[in-house]
Amino acid sequence: MRAITPLNITPEPLYLNRRAFMRTFGAGLAVAAGAPATLLGAPSEPTDLPTSFKDITHYNNFYEFSSNKQAVARMVSGFETTPWQLEVTGRVAKPALFDVEELITRFQPEERVYRLRCVEGWSMVIPWHGFPLARILEAVQPTPEARYLKFITVHRPRQMPGQKNGWYHWPYVEGLRLDEALNDLAILATGLYAKKLLAQNGAPVRLVVPWKYGFKSIKSIVRIELVKSRPTSLWMRAAPHEYGFYANVNPKVPHPRWSQASERRIGEFRRRRTLMYNGYEEQVAHLYAGMDLKANY
């Protein structure tokens, strides 16, 4: 399995999309014109270089601001992220209200370089700063009835113009099974490229579950509730046949719109084959042993 190991220093790649685009555009024309494949060289082994800071911060699915991925970075200026408190409640022995600064000093975020696979068929590699969600759960002590986590994004239509769009049921809600949340890959991120998270990336604190489609990684969280029954996420409510509770990356479960068998890594030209559980099979497959993954999409 090609897990990405954390790096101490992450170089910010300086390649230009347009360069890669132009180079391979030429190759595309050559193929179209029937040039032998040997002339073009064999495709090299796919690598997992971090996506550029500019692309990570200017191509965002954050419907609370806009459904236009380029527009989000322009729309976030009025969004206030300090002070910020994260409430952890529900079926826990010690409910808590954390200040984000306190989370950072207490849980010591570390760098985790993860692949991010969007359900729309594109992907990135992001050097997050975060700490395992399990650490917070240890602190609040879930009671035996706690079986799921329900995450809720802040609801501020004045600062988040997209929340005035009545098409969706705001605020954004997501959920995890408790054992999924306890997996070491599941983190709460507070930074990226060794900087504090920018608003468009879900500041000041967001979930990152890299083996699931990106929409599971809920942003700008204000509340985590431990609950008995399975929460219904915003996307499950909006289109239940397309977005299930699990939303594990799975190239074998098709989606009516986007290719799930393949993906485009941002900054690259050619598609790559999508990996089972986004390449994290070794770490998470056991969570779903014996489950029908087509029925539990």
Binding site: G28, A32, P254, P256, S259, S262, R271
Partner: peptide, 20 residues
């Protein structure tokens, strides 16, 4: 030619899977 780069296997998969 650009999105699927003449990958006929994937193109046929899309065509058979996706009504759009």
């Amino acid at each position: 030619g650009l999105d699927y780069f003449f990958d006929w296997e994937l193109i046929l998969l899309e065509l058979s899977e996706k009504l759009y």
